[in-house]
Simulated scan of single mutants.
Amino acid sequence: MTNYILYDDAAIRRHLLPFTFTRPVSEIRCGILTLTEKWAHFLQAKPSFLTEPYLQTKFPFVATDDNIFINGAVCATSAIAEAVRNLAEGEALAALDQIIAYRSPFEVVDPRQELNVISFPDPIVIIQRVWDIYGENGAQIKADFAALTHDRVSQPLNDPFTRVYAPENVFLEEGAKVRASVLNAENGPIYIGKNATVSEGSVIIGPFALGEGATVNWGAKMRMNTSIGPHCKVGGEVSNSVLFGFSNKGHDGFLGNSVLGEWCNLGANCNNSNLKNDYTNVKLYSYATEAMEDTHRLFCGLFMGDFSKAGISTLFNTGTVVGVNTNVFGAGFQPKHIPSFSWGGLAEGFTEYRIEKALKVAFETVSRRGEAFGETEREILKYVFEISRGYNRK
Rank of each mutant, 00 (worst) to 15 (best):
A291H: 11
N3T: 10
F42P: 09
V366A: 04
M222C: 10
K283M: 08
P111S: 10
S181N: 11
P53S: 02
G330D: 11
E352Y: 02
V328I: 15
E212I: 04
N86L: 14
I190Y: 07
V234W: 02
V170R: 03
V203A: 08
L115T: 13
K360G: 01
L346W: 13
N195T: 12
L275V: 12
E168S: 12
S104Y: 08
A209I: 03
Y7Q: 06
V328Y: 09
G31A: 07
Y54K: 00
L16D: 01
R354M: 08
A166S: 14
N269T: 14
G311N: 07
D159Q: 08
S227P: 06
A358R: 05
Y353E: 03
D65S: 10
E168R: 10
G201C: 15
L275C: 09
T215N: 13
R369S: 09
P156I: 13
Q113C: 05
V130Y: 05
Y165I: 14
R163Q: 08
G349N: 00
D9S: 04
T77A: 14
Y134H: 11
L266S: 03
T20D: 06
E168W: 09
F49R: 02
N271I: 15
F254K: 00
G374R: 10
I100L: 13
T64A: 10
G250I: 03
F350V: 02
V282D: 07
S308W: 04
L55C: 02
L210F: 03
E82G: 14
F316A: 04
A92L: 14
V328N: 08
I133P: 01
W263L: 01
R393C: 03
D110I: 10
E386T: 08
S154Y: 02
A310W: 12
E27D: 09
R368W: 13
L50K: 09
I70A: 08
Q128H: 04
R354A: 11
W39K: 00
E356W: 06
V259A: 00
A209P: 01
K336Q: 15
A347V: 06
K394S: 13
L17G: 03
D66N: 11
N195I: 06
E37T: 06
